[in-house]
């Protein structure tokens, strides 16, 4: 009895190994891994850009200057209020060609960076506003100007508050980066698309891709937890 169960198990493995979908995945696994790396690369650069933009836009949103406030509000509203997919096409085929001879990769990073910048701005603004008013008053009462108080007192505290929502934004951005597949950036989703179009192995191809995305997002989440814990003990 145990023996037949064992051979039955082998039979399943055998059936999997000889199925056409399995072969499609193994043949393209390295190709997919390359796409996953590309996805991480694009997301990382977009986040870097988004953090800088978000910091400026978030601070601008707290500004008393009406023009600065208006500009940052317009930027944030536009990129949060319209679909990223639309933004990608608008930038790639519409706006960016007017500025430079744009290629898919840089356009994708700009689109994702602008989009995440708007979300990060709101996260940072909320984080700054969550810091007790007394902190700003204490810093000002010591003679710091507004900028010094921001840099030395408010922002370091705000960054701790915003880590969980920032991690969520990074994960969302990583998943959303699949949308740049539409402008032929050879990231994970695009590679899956290309293989699928020639093999029609939906479950195998997209199942593999989904697992790769999952591994990456889970890793980011764990890194976030770790950072949060380290900062909490400080």
């Amino acid at each position: 009895m145990p023996l037949s169960e064992f051979t039955f198990g082998l039979g399943i493995l055998d059936a999997i190994a000889t199925s056409p979908g399995y072969r499609v995945v193994t043949n393209n696994f390295v190709y997919f891994l390359g796409g996953a790396w590309y996805t991480i690369f694009i997301t990382a650069l977009s986040i870097a850009m988004g953090m800088v933009l978000g910091l400026f836009a978030g601070l601008a949103k707290l500004s008393k200057n009406k023009i600065i406030y208006g500009l940052s509000t317009a930027y944030i509203d536009f990129f949060r209020g319209t679909p990223l997919f639309v933004q990608i096409f608008l930038l790639y085929f519409g706006v960016l060609p007017l500025i430079y001879d744009n290629d898919p990769l840089s356009s994708a990073i700009i689109a994702l960076g602008l989009n995440s910048g708007a979300y990060i701005a709101e996260i940072l603004r909320a984080g700054i506003q969550a810091i007790d008013k007394g902190q700003m008053e204490a810093a000002r009462s010591l003679g710091m100007n507004e900028r010094q108080a921001m840099i030395y007192v408010i922002l370091p505290q705000a960054f701790k508050v915003v880590i969980p929502p920032l991690i969520n934004e990074f994960i969302a951005l990583l998943k959303d980066s699949s949308l740049v597949s539409a402008i032929t950036v050879a990231e994970l989703m695009h590679r899956g698309d290309l293989v699928f179009a020639n093999t029609y192995q939906a479950t195998w191809v997209f199942g593999t891709i989904a697992m790769m995305y999952l591994v990456i997002t889970k890793t980011i989440a764990l890194l976030g937890d770790y950072t949060e814990r380290r900062l909490a003990t400080e």
């Binding site: 085929f93 597949s181 539409a182 402008i183 032929t184 695009h190 698309d193 290309l194």
Partner: peptide, 9 residues
Amino acid sequence: TRIFDDIGL
């Protein structure tokens, strides 16, 4: 090679 989802693009 640059493969789009529709030919218009």
